[in-house]
């Protein structure tokens, strides 16, 4: 069977190399400056968590990275491509290697679970047989432990199950980078922990890099190699969880109390 990578010609960095490099990023909505001279680097295989209060610009940042929002200025390099200047088709080729788990799950509510998972496969990767599609859908659902839901509608699933199906849809293209937007938001602690475990299993199985937006400290503690505290649109503090937990800075301390 052909692999997805054979179909999508995007430069693939080797281990340890940056997969996302952001520099001097600015984004405003009217007079409200959301991101100010923001910079970060995500290396291959790394899990980087962006920690910040609601309205601090975390979701805006992640949408700029995937090209859903156009920054006012600055550079966003994803897998070696400057995405702020890419044409639509070239941007789609990069997007095929970047998975995005939406905060609201964003499952297509008029489609079954199977159709939801098939959708990105069929759109990004046209030359694929039905047998290959079936195999990939089945594998992605098994990865999240929900193979039995294949013919169900999203409305028939609980919030936690919807999150797992959304993760399966993200995984189906075997992304090199996964962007998680508040993966445990709105879930009870037990289901939230299940999602965190899934994130770690995905990392172990696929070795993907991840940028995780969260203010759930349990999620931050268990998933992060590196944490960036975002405050008023700028990177306020950077370090691993243990270092930041010991910080005496009130701006950092407020998250760890």
């Amino acid at each position: 069977m052909l692999t997805l990578q054979q179909h999508i010609p995007v430069k693939t960095p080797t281990a340890g190399q940056p997969v996302i490099t952001i520099s001097h990023l600015n984004k405003s909505f009217g007079k409200n400056a959301v991101l100010k001279d923001f910079a970060l680097t995500l290396n291959r295989g790394e899990h980087l968590v962006i920690l910040g209060k609601s309205g601090s610009g975390k979701s805006v940042l992640i949408k700029c990275i995937i090209g859903l929002l156009q920054p006012d200025s600055g550079s966003i390099e994803v897998l070696g491509e400057e995405i702020t200047t890419l044409e639509h088709d070239a941007l789609d080729q990069v997007r095929a290697k970047v998975g995005f788990l939406f905060q609201s799950n964003a499952l297509y509510d008029s489609m079954t679970v199977r159709q939801n998972l098939e959708f990105p496969l069929r759109r990004h990767w046209i030359q694929v047989t039905q047998l290959e599609v079936d195999h990939m859908v089945q594998e992605a659902l098994e990865d999240v432990g929900l193979a039995h839901t294949i013919d169900m509608m999203p409305a028939e699933l609980s919030g936690g199950m919807q999150k797992r199906i959304a993760l399966a849809r993200t995984l189906i293209l075997r992304p090199e980078i996964i962007l998680y937007d508040e993966p445990t938001a709105g879930l009870d602690p037990i289901t939230g922990r299940e999602i965190i475990d899934l994130i770690m299993q995905v990392r172990q199985k696929y070795g993907s890099s991840a940028l995780i937006i969260s203010h759930d400290m349990n999620c931050v503690r268990l998933t992060a190699d590196k944490v960036i505290v975002l405050f008023e649109g700028r990177p306020y503090a950077t370090g691993n969880y243990a270092t930041l937990e010991r910080s005496e800075d009130p701006g950092v301390k407020q998250f760890f109390q």
Partner: peptide, 17 residues
């Protein structure tokens, strides 16, 4: 409804205009 639940964004990310 698709707009407020980010389904339109998800579609764009999935290589669909």
């Amino acid at each position: 409804s698709m707009k407020v639940t980010e389904q339109i964004d998800a579609m764009e990310v999935s290589g669909t205009n």
